[in-house]
Write a protein that binds this DNA or RNA. Structure first.
Length: 423
RNA sequence: GUGGGUGUAGUUCAGCGGUUAGAGCGUCAGAUUGUGGCUCUGAAUGUCGUGGGUUCGAUUCCCACCAUCCACCCCA
């Protein structure tokens, strides 16, 4: 084997694609019910969009972007997250002139981060995500969380935990930053090197540090939640009420600090514990300053991203059975050479009638054709042989009941469609 | 970027310093006359990751490289 997929990428083979399709169908269905419309944005954008949007102090921007120069000397980047592109589209298409709110989603959106792959982590993965613009009320935060919660549970997942937090806004966050710095000032030497760096630039990220040394220093640290301004506090209170109204259980976790700089107020994650370990399936929050920061009007935003590979991994980890659709509903067995062309015409007539039909293209024996039909999950098998050809008929076998009936060749397609409930 | 594990058939894995490297699953073909799922029989497929070293001899031992998996960091 010489050629292989680049590190950290995965193919979706014909043996697996149905699993993706089931998840994507669920995403589309729930978005339709919640009033979110699909958007599609380019796989790559100008690098500057992410520098300004995601924030140039974040790990994602600093060390994980797939950035390169195109032949015209422009710096472009494969999208490392979904939101910035949607905001750019909103501005470029002047969608903000439409009635608010604008509720959008993307499904199967490729996302690229240059990292070392491991379980549940790839260099290219795919996200489902929603974004709502021009909706400042916390009800929309709650609606999105509910959408994600319902989607995951609708797929059959269980034992998930919703963690919410508020990280304040430009009014109150600096107050908290200062309080946190004051608290940590005397403990600075004990922090890990990256956290020493974070101390000045973005002290909240220290809360997210997994180093035991740092965690030990954080005991008794002030919480953001004690520093929220009145507006943020009211928003957070109302969010909790809304989640209560929607029957979505949650826990408040001041340790939830998102890795992207644009978040304000609400942040949340949906986490599951699996045999492979803890997986964040979904993460998001509110980003009220982002649209303006990218040169647009002051427009609020809320959104989340959900990793499809992780959802599929979670489904596999919890042994959740998904019904694989049969490859064909009817398989046509041809007994001999003479039956092949009439058979091809019959299969076409069946397909025209909406039946998922196929026939032998390999030249196998009747027995092998039946075996193959069985592997394809065919409910019906049609047989075309000498006997049928001479009488202008086709034999139809129900693979479950083993009953066989003879149909006229002319009316066969319509009759099969009727039996399969398609007519 | 740092650390650990693993590389043998399509796949999951055995194996051993010494003739023609194995098994389950899968694939294909058969078990009389045009008919599947179960069972039985048979067949095909491997530069034993790559390069070097030790050795009379390496798939087996050592080293390097590459790939892959996992952990940390970070995140979906």
């Amino acid at each position: 084997m010489q050629v292989q997929a680049p590190k950290g990428t995965e193919d979706v083979t014909p043996l697996q694609s149905w699993r993706w399709q089931l998840v994507e169908a669920a995403q589309r269905e729930i978005c339709a019910r919640y009033g979110y419309r699909e958007v599609r944005t380019p796989v790559f954008e100008h690098t500057e969009l992410f520098l300004r949007g995601v924030g140039d102090t974040t790990d994602v921007v600093q060390k994980e972007m797939y950035t390169f120069e195109d032949k015209g000397g422009r710096s472009v980047t494969l999208k490392p997250e979904g939101t910035a592109g949607v905001v750019r589209m909103l501005l470029e298409s002047r969608l903000y002139a439409e009635p608010m709110p604008i509720k959008t989603y993307y499904s199967n959106c490729p996302v690229f981060r240059y990292e070392k792959p491991q379980s549940g982590r790839l260099r290219e993965h795919h996200q489902f995500g929603v974004e709502a613009f021009g909706a400042p009320l916390p009800t929309v935060d709650a609606e999105q969380i509910s959408l994600a919660w319902e989607l995951l549970h609708g797929l059959g997942l269980r034992d998930l935990a919703l963690h919410i937090n508020s990280i304040g806004c430009p009014t109150c966050r600096p107050v908290y930053h200062q309080r946190l710095r004051d608290f940590l000032a005397s403990k600075l030497d004990a922090l890990c090197d990256t956290c020493k760096d974070r101390y000045e630039r973005n002290p909240m990220r220290i809360l997210d540090c997994k180093s035991p040394a740092c965690q030990a220093q954080l005991v008794g640290a002030p919480s953001v939640l004690d520093c929220l301004c009145e507006d943020c506090q009211n928003h957070f209170d109302a969010l909790q009420q809304a989640l209560g109204a929607l029957n979505v259980p949650f826990s408040i976790d001041p340790g939830i600090v998102r890795g992207l700089d644009y978040y304000t107020k609400t942040v949340f994650e949906i986490i599951g514990q699996f045999p492979v370990g803890k997986l964040t399936l979904c993460g998001g929050g509110r980003y009220d300053g982002l649209v303006e920061q990218l040169g647009g009007p002051a427009l609020s935003g809320v959104g989340f991203g959900m990793g499809t590979e992780r959802v599929l991994l979670a489904l596999a980890q919890q042994d959740i059975a998904q019904a694989e659709p049969a490859l064909v509903e009817l398989f046509l067995c041809t007994q001999n050479e003479a039956a092949r062309m009439p058979g091809l015409a019959l299969v076409k007539a069946l397909r025209d009638a909406g039946v998922h039909a196929d026939m032998d293209h390999v030249g196998r024996s009747m027995k092998a054709q039946f075996k193959f039909a069985d592997k394809c999950g065919a409910r019906l098998v049609a047989v075309l042989g000498e006997e049928e050809l001479s009488g202008g008929t086709v034999t139809l076998r129900d693979m479950q009941t083993r009953e066989e009936t003879k149909l006229s060749l002319d009316g066969a397609a319509a009759e099969v469609a009727r039996r399969l409930g398609k007519a």
